[in-house]
């Protein structure tokens, strides 16, 4: 069994384990990005093409048009039970990234999710997060309980031995379940290549630029790249040293510093 198959099999086991415990009270979060689309692919594999639970898309209404197109195409093709979660109330109030990115994310992502969880009574959510995305993710568990405020008590987490996962929840808790926690960005692309998983065209280079991670159109910056196919992306990742999200953060810091150094008279 090669490494990718090993990752695949572990993920399928976790997906089935989650479903066995949370039938009818579970959904998968689908951002239409490469990670969650791969997770969706694995969920279909786990249940032989017929997903026994809904997929949920948190729609901020600021997503790229390619995302909506992709979502609708594959919802139909794969016969998905799609839930589109929107914070209509906040959108009516005119919340948008120009007015404040923090508020925008809280209202249109976090609160939209909270509202949908309550509306549908979900107790478990499958998410495609990976350990290598960010330092704090290294502390994540596969089955990660959250309280009613969605807070994660990472300092006081139960043990998770072998592949025995915490299965029972206290009254107001729900589970974040991370079947792909052990994958890396490179693994994901290798798997997409091997399985020929469809992904949105935003990941491929146009005019020397492509998106490495995608969210809202308003807050995403493409990276310089000539990779036009999955194969070229895999090759590119072998030589890239910067972290997936680091590019975005450093750009922001650099812009801030430039501004500050001007104020201080250096430039």
């Amino acid at each position: 069994m090669n490494q990718i198959t090993e990752l695949e099999q572990k993920t399928i086991y976790i997906i089935r384990e989650a479903y066995a415990q949370y039938k009818g009270k579970m959904a998968m979060l689908w951002s239409i990005g490469k990670d969650s689309t791969s997770l969706l692919w694995l969920c279909r594999k786990a249940f032989f093409g017929k997903l026994p639970f809904p997929v949920m898309h948190i729609d901020t209404s600021f997503k790229f048009k390619e995302i909506y197109e992709f979502r609708d195409k594959y919802t139909k093709e794969w016969g998905l039970d799609l839930i589109v979660a929107k914070n209509e109330e906040a959108l009516k109030r005119g919340v948008n990234p120009k007015k404040g990115k923090f508020e925008c994310c809280t209202e249109l992502k976090t609160n939209a999710l909270k509202q949908a969880m309550t509306k549908y009574g979900f107790r478990a959510l499958l998410l495609a997060i990976r350990r290598d995305e960010h330092g704090i993710r290294a502390k994540e568990r596969v089955f990660s309980p959250r309280d009613e405020h969605f807070t994660w008590d990472y300092k006081n987490q139960p043990a998770e031995l072998w592949d025995q996962y915490k299965s029972k929840l206290a009254q107001d808790q729900h589970f974040r379940i991370h079947p792909m926690l052990h994958w890396t960005e490179k693994n994901i692309w290798e798997y997409i290549l091997r399985e020929n998983i469809p992904i949105t065209s935003l990941y491929f280079s146009k005019n020397g630029k492509r998106y490495r991670s995608i969210g809202c159109e308003t807050c995403c910056n493409p990276v310089c790249s000539n990779a036009k196919t999955v194969k070229e992306i895999v090759e590119e990742l072998k030589v890239t040293k910067t972290a997936e999200r680091a590019g975005r953060a450093q750009d922001k810091e650099q812009a801030y510093m430039m501004q500050k150094l001007r104020t201080l008279g250096y430039m």
């Binding site: 953060a249 450093q250 810091e253 650099q254 801030y256 510093m257 500050k260 201080l264």
Partner: peptide
């Protein structure tokens, strides 16, 4: 610290 940079 501002990321890798330094402010006064």
């Amino acid at each position: 610290k501002i990321g890798r940079f330094g402010d006064h």
